[in-house]
Design a binder for these strands. Structure first.
Lengths: 131, 131
DNA sequence: TTAACTGTTCTATAATAAATATAACAAATA
DNA sequence: TATTTGTTATATTTATTATAGAACAGTTAA
């Protein structure tokens, strides 16, 4: 598995896991229809509690990134992924605005910020190419 | 004051306050040398505890956005603001990567993301112009 | 059928972070 | 002198996070 946690981070484990799986989808390491480990197996592999995994899966299910079939297991949503909702845009703005404000204070230009985003964009997209 | 809190947000009050002040600096509503209210007065105005304000001020002081003179009060740093440090870049990447990954999953192009950042950039910069 | 495994739900507990509440101190000012 | 400043200390309450163990209902494999 390509998943590990940063226990120094202030982000909760279940949020980190949710994000790692979304990054996996964005980089096409995880594709529609791909199976994910059961909550119990993944918990064992990663050395965390079953409920922590389940919490992350519930978030992903609610947002439409994965499907959970009663006893067949967990799969990356085969029917495609959610659109750009207003909820998502609001979340992005709430988290991005402080970062951009601080970047401005520290003297970054619009070009600097654009470059930073572009770099991250490609970094995420081409994560499956390395290794 | 231009400060209010979103009690629905999962961001702690002292973090929200820190960010609002940084946004104030970025939009030039707050300029080098400008005084900030005392911890007690601001706490009273905003209806929160003194220690919550103090926590935000300490963060801003540590990062170099404000100066705190023993009994003269709190001022926006008159000697300029901190550079783009590696700590800051690491924080940006840690918070921005999941947002960009999710944006990609939801079908946003590099151009879409760039536009979103540009919009926020101007929105922050021209916050002082309205009203 | 039996046994093992699935997601789901429930109750409980421990650890940590966030916010509040008082109180006190030392330095500066009005 | 009296007030205000930032700072520090202790204490309490609340919410979140993570863990623990157990049970249930449906599915699959032996």
């Amino acid at each position: 598995m390509f998943i590990s946690f940063d226990f120094q981070s202030d982000a909760p484990i279940y949020v980190q896991l949710r994000n790692k799986i979304i990054e996996g989808i964005a980089s096409k390491q995880l594709n529609p229809g791909d199976p994910l480990p059961s909550v119990r197996n993944l918990a064992k592999d990663l050395g965390v509690n079953m409920h922590t995994i389940n919490k992350a899966y519930q978030l992903l299910k609610t947002d439409g990134f994965i499907q959970i079939h009663r006893q067949r297991g967990v799969v990356i949503n085969p029917d495609g992924f959610p659109e750009v909702t207003t909820d998502f845009l609001e979340k992005v703005e709430e988290e991005l605005r402080p970062l951009i404000a601080e970047a401005i204070c520290r003297g970054m230009s619009q070009e600097d910020i654009r470059r930073l985003c572009d770099n991250l964009y490609h970094q995420v997209k081409e994560e499956g190419a390395e290794e």
